[in-house]
Amino acid sequence: MASIIDIKGECALHVRNFDFTYKGATAPSLKKISMPIAKNSITALIGPSGCGKTTLLRSFNRMHDLYPGNKYEGEILFDGRNILDPKEDLIHLRTRIGMIFQKPTAFPMSIYDNVAYGLRLKGIKNKSELDGRVEKALQDAAIWKETQDRLKHDANGLSGGQQQRLCIARAIAVEPEVLLFDEPTSALDPISTQGIEKLVIELKEKVSIIIVTHNMQQAARVSDYTGFMYLGDLIELGYTEELFVTPKEKLTQEYITGKFG
């Protein structure tokens, strides 16, 4: 059976007996997943391609609901409520649980408007408040220096690494409690990757972070907890330093020593 540790501090989210089945699929892609997500910590999800990391991550903000016919079973508890409840207000949920995608997703508008997008959705119209919060978000995402002189320029003129920071700024501008990262550096060069990793570590002061990565070194570098997934199962969840040195499960051991994957 899976080996899941108890976490020390508070939990941001709690997954319980969670099954996920894609539309038309005969078998669930995620099977009886149970795991805590620690607050103000970074939890990494690793595992071979196709094991369900992205599927699990996209369940936390109910992204799968954009495509009808997918099925959730079990519970994901957030603030004491099951967010898988069909009556859950998804718009509100997604302002509290933000997401950064694999490829940068800068909107076709100015740098300023990108960051202000979520704020305006929240109904903030006051110019000086918007200005202040846009600047703060850009600073927190460590991209203010490069962009302060060209806030009105098209965001697509930025480099890949800058665009990914912009997306992070856009996500943190609305002050979410949880941030989901799906392989955020897989499209970036090593220098940009380093920068994003540093930023992710800084962000955990304010938010709880779940990061999917196929890069074990990255998981080891940034995360506090690591979950190893295999074929839709969560095999092991442990402290990162323990999991990579003394894994409890044989499968984890084989994966981190490069026997498969």
């Binding site: 903000n61 992204m63 954009l66 718009i91 509100h92 949920l93 997604r94 302002t95 933000g98 997401m99 995608f101 694999q102 490829k103 997703t105 909107f107 076709p108 508008m109 997008y117 979520g118 959705l121 929240k122 997306c167 856009r170 996500a171 609305v174």
Partner: peptide
Amino acid sequence: VPGTLREAAFALGAPKYKVILNVVYRGAK
């Protein structure tokens, strides 16, 4: 217009009509 752009807007809590009006239309302008 890439589907990930739509998803990114939804992920910020945008309702569908706003995703279309201010992200999808802009991308296809």
